[in-house]
Nucleic acid binder design. Structure first.
Length: 356
DNA sequence: GATATTTGACCTGC
DNA sequence: GCAGGTCAAATATC
């Protein structure tokens, strides 16, 4: 076992431990009465668990690729179900007709792929006809009317299936009850390197839409505003009687987003490690249902860094909570009153709305 | 012309 | 036999 493998192995263990810890916290939440102000915290922990498991899968996948082991069956996380491997043995004896061999091999291989399902809500006003980009390039290869379903199911496979032997597929099914809700079933993890091919990879209509949004001056301005906010928001912790709760999870310093025509801020592409992915509303007064947002790079006074900030809408409206970290301590939950939040007065942002 | 999507036909598993 | 999944030729788009 070389050092690289050890490092990945340790990373995997850490990821799984984190998932387990947050699952325990979730369980504790559910064991008590869940009040409305706890809902967003529940959402937070669920996102973290998902990120941990996804990171675990990525690590396993990378380890698999460097060892060049064919068809390693990846152990699924609890939220992932693996299709049962067929007990038939005559399917594996290789006695196929030549022109059928590939098809049958593919079918058997796919039977072993891990599957998991995500639900993605798409707002009508953002113009998407389908779920938002998940960071991978997919090619649609089929559509099928499903018995009892109002909307057809679409089938996608990785664009690089042939070039990089990547067998990831996904199925997209629009909800009958809620047309804005898409249930996406993923089968198999990507073994391709799409970041490497990003410059040359073909674009889907969804990505075309994203690029149009990214070129929108309003969106560029919004991203600049977000960067400014990150640079100017401070929390004075010098004399803060802080209330910390142990809470460790990984975050990434990367972040991107855009605003739509109505200047609603929306996270469009977040790193897998970044908690969130749902619409924050610190800009728009028209989306008051959530005042939570993630600011992965906000610097607090002293050495603490804000990773996320939550303006409680409970009966303590002036109380903020944040997940913070420092160079010497892990990420912790921190609660602080409003007066400790400082925004640079030169920052072009209507903080009266945010600090409502 | 290259690439992506559509859609009817075919295949597979239950 | 049926429903779901995939293929591949035709068509659309860039």
């Amino acid at each position: 076992m070389d050092c690289g493998f050890n490092w990945e192995y340790n990373s995997l263990i850490n990821e799984l431990i984190q998932g387990m810890e947050h699952t325990k916290q979730l369980r504790a939440y559910f064991s008590s009465t869940v009040s409305s102000d706890k809902i967003q915290e529940l959402h937070l922990h669920m996102q973290i668990i998902l990120s941990s498991f996804e990171n675990s899968l990525s690590i396993l996948k990378w380890t698999d690729s460097i060892t060049q082991t064919p068809q390693v069956v990846v152990a699924p996380p609890p939220s992932i179900s693996v299709d049962e491997i067929s007990p038939k043995t005559d399917d594996l004896n290789g006695n196929f007709k030549d022109n059928d061999q590939d098809l049958r091999y593919v079918s058997k291989k796919r039977k072993q792929l891990p599957t998991w399902t995500e639900q993605v809500r798409v707002s009508a006003e953002n113009g998407f006809e389908g779920p938002t980009d998940d960071g991978y390039s997919w090619r649609k290869y089929g559509q099928k009317d499903i018995l009892g379903a109002k909307y057809p199911r679409s089938y996608y496979r990785c664009t690089y299936r042939l070039m990089q032997n990547c067998w990831a597929t996904k199925q997209v099914q629009r909800s009958d009850d809620d047309p804005a809700l898409f249930e996406i079933t993923y089968k198999g993890s990507h073994t391709c390197n799409q970041a490497f091919n990003s410059a040359a990879q073909p674009t889907s209509p969804e990505k075309h839409e994203f690029k149009k949004q990214a070129n929108n001056p309003k969106i560029v301005q919004s991203n600049q505003m977000l960067a400014n906010l990150q640079a100017n928001l401070r929390v004075n912790t010098n004399d803060l009687n802080k209330k910390e709760t142990t809470c460790s999870f990984p975050f990434s310093p990367t972040f991107s987003g855009f605003v739509d025509e109505n200047l609603h801020f929306q996270v469009s592409q977040v790193d897998d490690n970044l908690v969130g992915g749902y619409s924050p509303s610190f800009v728009s007064p028209t989306t008051p249902e959530s005042s939570y947002f993630s600011l992965p790079s906000c610097q607090m006074n002293g050495s603490r860094r804000i990773h996320s900030l939550h303006h409680s809408e409970s009966d303590l409206p002036d109380l903020f909570s944040a997940n913070t970290s420092s160079t010497s301590s892990p990420i912790v939950g921190l609660e602080f009153p409003l007066e400790h939040v400082e925004l640079d007065p030169n920052f072009p942002f209507d903080n009266s709305e945010f600090f409502r």
